[in-house]
């Protein structure tokens, strides 16, 4: 229907955005009583997301004409942005920005690098940027969840942690079980994504491949590749975080610093 009214693709895109935003506004209106403080947050997030994705679309259109390795810089910029979003969620943890940057870079960077080296993901902007961004974004969410859960566990178990320290345990031993809980909680979504693949959801990338007229089976296989890559990156980044986090919430004398 829209195609008939707006034959120009760009105009159609703008109208599609507008309609989606109007429906979101309607939902905000409906939930506003139950979640009053969410309204502005959602509104700002919507606006921000729209502007950012337009900017990225413009940059991509520009980059597609240049050399393919510029994709690396786009992804590096995304990792930096992702780390600062993690900091917003987990800002109470000291020096969390460098922690998030290190773990996202280590997780997403090494797994993507390996995938490129093995030829599983081609070094082409048109594929590397969207796939890489999915990997980085999911790794970022995993980090936020890991840190949020870890902080919650620590604050709920200060007495147990300090009892362990008082018995001569190292900081790592004292928080071992809370690291495990955070690990598990943060990786559940990545695992569930794999589990529900195809049954509960057909992710965007596969939709894109199907829409672009390629074989649905190839789209399906590639989607599996991407979700598995996401899991590897998320898992590796959590591992890095679990090694770095203890020194950020304890003093060098193994005194618990995190109290709020």
């Amino acid at each position: 229907m829209l195609e008939r009214w707006f034959p120009n693709q760009m105009e159609r895109g703008a109208v599609q955005c507008l309609i989606a935003a109007l429906i979101a506004a309607l939902v905000i209106l409906l939930v506003r009583r139950r979640a009053p403080n969410l309204v502005t947050e959602v509104f700002v997030a919507e606006l921000r997301g729209l502007l950012q994705i337009i900017a990225v679309g413009t940059i991509l259109a520009f980059l597609l004409r240049g050399p393919q390795w510029t994709a690396i810089f786009v992804l590096a910029g995304m990792a930096i942005a992702a780390a600062s979003i993690v900091r917003k969620r987990a800002g109470k943890i000291p020096r969390v920005y460098t922690l998030a940057l290190a773990s996202i870079t280590a997780g997403a960077g090494s797994i993507l690098g390996l995938m490129i080296a093995l030829g599983v993901i081609p070094m082409r902007i048109s594929i590397l940027v969207p796939v890489g961004s999915m990997v980085i974004a999911n790794t970022m969410n995993t980090q936020s969840m890991f840190l949020d859960r870890f902080r919650g566990e620590i604050l709920a178990h200060i007495g147990e942690i300090e009892s362990a320290l008082a018995l001569g345990a190292t900081a790592d031993t004292a928080v071992g079980r809370y690291l495990q809980a955070a690990f598990r909680a943060s990786l559940i979504p990545s695992i569930d994504n794999l589990r529900s693949l195809g049954i509960v959801w057909i992710p965007g990338l596969m939709a894109g491949i199907v829409l672009s007229g390629q074989s649905p089976l190839y789209g399906a296989l590639y989607q599996f590749v991407v979700l598995t890559t996401i899991f590897s990156s998320a898992g590796l980044s959590c591992l890095v975080t679990s090694y770095l986090i203890t020194r950020r919430v304890f003093s060098p004398q193994d005194q618990l610093l995190l109290r709020g």
Binding site: L167, G168, T170, Q253, D254
Partner: peptide, 8 residues
């Protein structure tokens, strides 16, 4: 002293 030994 090493802090772990102290706490023991």
């Amino acid at each position: 002293m090493p802090v772990l030994q102290l706490r023991r």
